[in-house]
């Protein structure tokens, strides 16, 4: 049988898309479907039936609005911190590292070759009583003698900032590297000082990287629960912790599904709004 040329792309797409449809699209639809189920009266734990109980969403949200809020606040803080740390780093690698550019780029990613979990545990040690941070800060009287850093929001945000850093640095580097350094020189030549050059030329030209980096950091951070479990305490629980425990400890699938679906939709809405806003700013 002769394959016509116009069929080639569809044949190439078919296996992958069939896979994604079965194991990504269907599950999401199923998730939506599960989210409105209620327990079978008299049934075992874990047995549910479809009753289109949209009230699940109301309960799920009102019971956990603190954790929702916390997830978005922590993720936003981690994203801003990661941006603040990464931007000068990516800028330095793109413009000031000469022939060491590739080596430095490898070094930025290298720490993330050790396991995500081990890194997080390492932060627990670093910020713990036996680490070097707490004694140093105490002897400098920056924190009180009784203050600890582990099991705090500070520790959770620190861990998240660190763990998602390459998702910020790499897109920033990619867009900064594409800037012709002569345009930055031209700005200085045209009477703009360093700060003005950054505001009027460098930052606008690197906006694609800023948008991509903040999204790639914010999305996993908002859904994360590993940092909160290892570095936090019950008072720093994020929405991810709630979903996890609803599934595994309480076996409350409908609430877990409703929470998951809410999280996904909330993120999609935020992302869309953000891209639109950033997109228009870029044109100004």
């Amino acid at each position: 049988m002769k394959i016509s040329k116009s069929q080639v792309p569809y044949l190439l797409l078919f296996p992958g898309f069939a896979f994604l449809f079965t194991f990504f699209v269907l599950p999401i639809i199923n998730l939506a479907q599960t989210s409105t189920q209620t327990p079978i009266s008299g049934g075992d734990t874990g047995q549910y039936t479809q009753t289109f109980a949209f009230s699940n969403y109301i309960h799920a949200f009102t019971d956990n609005k603190d954790q929702f809020l916390r997830s978005f606040v922590y993720a936003t803080l981690a994203t801003i911190l990661a941006l603040a740390i990464s931007y000068p780093l990516a800028y330095a690698i793109a413009f000031k590292s000469g022939k060491f550019k590739n080596i430095l780029l490898v070094l930025v990613v290298a720490p993330f070759f050790t396991s995500f979990l081990l890194r997080t545990v390492a932060w627990k040690q670093i910020l713990g009583e036996e680490g070097f941070v707490v004694p140093t800060l105490r002897s400098l009287h920056i924190i009180g003698q009784q203050t600890t850093l582990t099991s705090t929001a500070f520790a959770v945000v620190t861990g998240m900032t660190y763990n998602f850093l390459p998702f910020m640095t790499l897109p920033l580097y990619a867009s900064l590297e594409r800037i012709d350094p002569r345009t930055i020189e031209a700005s200085g030549d045209l009477y703009a000082n360093g700060l003005t050059t950054f505001r009027r030329v460098t930052l606008p030209l690197s906006m694609p990287g800023v948008v991509a980096g903040t999204l790639l950091t914010f999305i996993p951070a908002a859904g994360d629960y590993v940092n909160a479990s290892i570095l936090g305490s019950p008072s720093t629980k994020m929405i991810g912790n709630v979903i996890e425990s609803r599934y595994f400890k309480i076996v409350d699938y409908p609430t877990a599904a409703a929470l998951s679906f809410t999280l996904m939709v909330a993120i999609l809405i935020l992302v869309t709004l953000y891209i639109r806003k950033a997109g228009t700013e870029e044109l100004v």
Binding site: R182, T183, E185, S187, D189, P204, E282
Partner: peptide, 13 residues
């Protein structure tokens, strides 16, 4: 002093 750069260096944005 102003410069006309090689390849112009116009601001693309």
């Amino acid at each position: 002093i102003n410069t006309v750069f090689q390849n112009y260096a116009l601001f693309p944005h």
